[in-house]
């Protein structure tokens, strides 16, 4: 890996050196500022998810928790005042928000999200890798045509599909069913192209040797090729899982009619409450719970996120 920095020139005058130092300091300050802008909102979100609703709205900046806890309603059932919970940057955490979402439908939504993401990802791994292999290795009539159609499909904006998907699934009787969600997202163009590209990069010789030994294409694919494709399959797994874990639009259209079927993003919009009176304690606790699983996966598989990133925006 090479680093494309601008190397200091050997013969530079004092002014240039001063200028360079100023530039470096400005660049560094900018970088640190931007990193703070990216990180601080998450810190505040986590801190405020442990506050009572009134304290979120009136004392949002306190971010250092004390070792005690409070409940948001006192013995008489009255809400405590924000000042009782917050003092300067210190606050006494409350788990009422988390308790609230746990008693709500959130556990159900979390299960839905995990289940749907897992099943869609598994189906995609099979369908995408099979199609990718066929496009990379097998000569069948229409191979080129299928490839170009899949490339073209990448260009179709998702919002255009909202309405017709809704009415097609309705006609098929699949609206507000898990099956409807799964089958709609069972294959994706990005995954197929990713797998095709990977299969083209591995040497043909092993497959040819197996063919000489009399193995058919199905055996070769499932026994020999697929086990070699672990890196590509991992990248695909992560992208598909992440995409479905966070999928709002498809869930809204396909599962929006039945709150029992909601996934977490869709459920969060329900926790919000109606109108301008937002239940911040519930919403922020729900946001944290929704984010934690993805955060864990991110920290363990960061390499795959960064490697596959050039495709990230293309997933449909």
């Amino acid at each position: 890996m090479t680093t494309a920095t601008l190397a200091p020139q050997r013969t530079e005058s004092g002014t240039i050196r001063t200028l360079r130092t100023i530039l470096t300091v400005v660049a560094l300050a900018f970088l640190v500022l931007f990193a703070a802008v990216q990180i601080v909102p998450f810190v505040l979100t986590v801190a405020n998810s442990f506050k009572c609703d009134a304290a979120v709205e009136n004392r949002p900046l306190a971010f250092i928790p004390r070792l005690a806890t409070v409940t948001c309603r006192d013995a008489e059932g009255e809400f405590i005042s924000p000042d009782e919970q917050v003092d300067g940057v210190l606050f006494t955490p409350s788990i009422d928000g988390y308790r609230g979402i746990l008693n709500d439908q959130l556990p159900r939504w979390a299960l839905n999200t995990a289940g749907l993401s897992l099943v869609v990802t598994l189906v995609r791994l099979v369908l995408d890798s099979m199609a990718g292999y066929a496009l990379a290795r097998l000569s069948f009539p229409g191979n080129r045509l299928v490839f170009f159609v899949i490339l073209g499909v990448l260009m179709i904006p998702g919002v255009v599909l909202l309405i017709p998907r809704f009415l097609m699934l309705k006609e098929m009787g699949l609206l507000n069913t898990y099956q409807g969600y799964i089958i709609t997202l069972a294959a994706d163009a990005f995954g197929i192209l990713l797998m095709k590209q990977f299969f083209e990069s591995i040497p043909k010789e092993i497959e040819e040797a197996a063919q000489v030994d009399g193995a058919n294409r199905f055996t070769i694919f499932f026994r020999i090729v697929l086990p070699m494709a672990t890196p590509a399959l991992t990248a695909l797994t992560i992208f598909s899982f992440q995409g479905n874990w966070n999928n709002f639009m498809d869930a809204l259209i396909i599962l929006g009619g039945n709150t029992d079927m909601y996934n977490l993003p869709l459920g969060l919009t329900v926790l919000r409450g109606a109108g301008q009176d937002i239940q911040y304690d519930l919403v922020l606790a729900g946001s944290v719970v929704t984010t934690i699983p993805m955060a864990i996966i991110f920290f363990f598989f960061q390499r795959y996120f960064v490697e596959g990133i050039s495709y990230s925006g293309l997933k449909g």
């Binding site: 066929a134 191979n143 899949i150 179709i156």
Partner: peptide, 22 residues
């Protein structure tokens, strides 16, 4: 030819039904 078509068909059916047909 047979393997290729059967490998590619499931994905193509899904993409056609839920991306092109809509």
């Amino acid at each position: 030819t047979l393997a290729g078509l059967s490998f590619v068909l499931p994905a193509v059916v899904v993409l056609f039904t839920f991306l092109i047909l809509p």
